[in-house]
Design a protein around this nucleic acid. Structure first.
Lengths: 110, 110
DNA sequence: TATATGTGCAATCAATCGATTGCACAATGA
DNA sequence: TCATTGTGCAATCGATTGATTGCACATATA
C-alpha cells in the first residue's frame, strides 16, 4: 500500500481535514460533522494521514484528538522548491539542472 | 475526470517525468526510454500533465517536445505555505494563517 | 511512391480508491 | 451492572487508475 505525502494530499477531502485540524485538534466525530460523508470514511482518511505522518494522536479518555504535523509537508515543499525558483525567475542561484534547462530551451528554438 | 495539480503530482512516475522534462524539453519517446514502462503509458501520463497545465507542447515536425510549466506548481506551494509557517515556527502572522485556512475550507466545500 | 518512424487514441484488465454498512470493543455515566 | 458513546476494523461495491496491446494517421526518408 503506497502511503506517501504526495498521495495523501491528492484527495481534496484529506486536504480539508488537514486544514480543519490545523486550526484546532479534533476528534474523528468532530471532523465528520464538518463533512457530508460518514464517520468511517473520515476515519479512513485520518488513518491514511496518520500512516504517512501528517497527523499525530493525542488520546483523552475514549476520545482521540488528532493534530497536524505540518513538518511532514516539507517533503512536498522540497520537491517543489527548484521549480519555484524557475517560476519566480530567480536564476542567479540555480543549480546545473535549471541552467541546463534554460540553455536547452534557447537552443531548441528555431 | 478529476484533473488537478495535486492529483497529477501524486504519481511518482509523473513527478519523475516533470523532473526529466524540466532539465530539457523531450519527446514522448525520449521520456519513455528513461522508464521501464511502455511509450503509451508515458503518453497517458503526459496527457494528464498537459490537461492540468503542468506541461506545454512545442511541435517540431512529427516530433512533439514537451516543456514544463513550473508556475502551475504554485497552486500546491500556496496551499502548503501556511503550514510552512507553522513548521518553521513563524507564528507572528498566526491570524493570517487562520484566515487562509478558513477561506480554503469554505472554498473547497462540495 | 513505398517504407519506416513518431505519436495519439480506443479497448481492455487488474489493482487501488473512496465510500458505505455492520460489527466489535473500550470508556463513560445512569 | 447496563446502556450509551467514541472509535476502529472488516467486508463490500462502484468508480478510477495505471498499464498493456492494437490500430490509425501524419511526417520523414529511401
Amino acid at each position: 500500500m503506497r502511503r506517501d505525502v504526495f498521495q495523501a494530499i491528492a484527495d481534496p477531502t484529506r486536504r480539508d481535514i488537514i486544514g480543519l485540524i490545523a486550526k484546532k485538534p479534533m476528534t474523528p466525530n468532530g471532523v465528520a460533522e464538518s463533512f457530508g460523508v460518514s464517520r468511517q470514511a473520515i476515519s479512513k482518511h485520518i488513518q491514511i494521514l496518520l500512516e504517512c505522518g501528517l497527523l499525530g494522536i493525542n488520546p483523552q479518555g475514549r476520545e482521540r484528538y488528532y493534530t497536524v504535523q505540518p513538518k511532514k509537508l516539507a517533503e512536498v515543499a522540497d520537491w517543489i522548491d527548484p521549480f519555484r525558483k524557475m517560476w519566480e525567475g530567480r536564476f542567479e542561484k540555480l543549480d546545473d539542472i535549471i541552467n541546463t534547462l534554460k540553455n536547452e530551451q534557447n537552443g531548441s528554438e528555431k
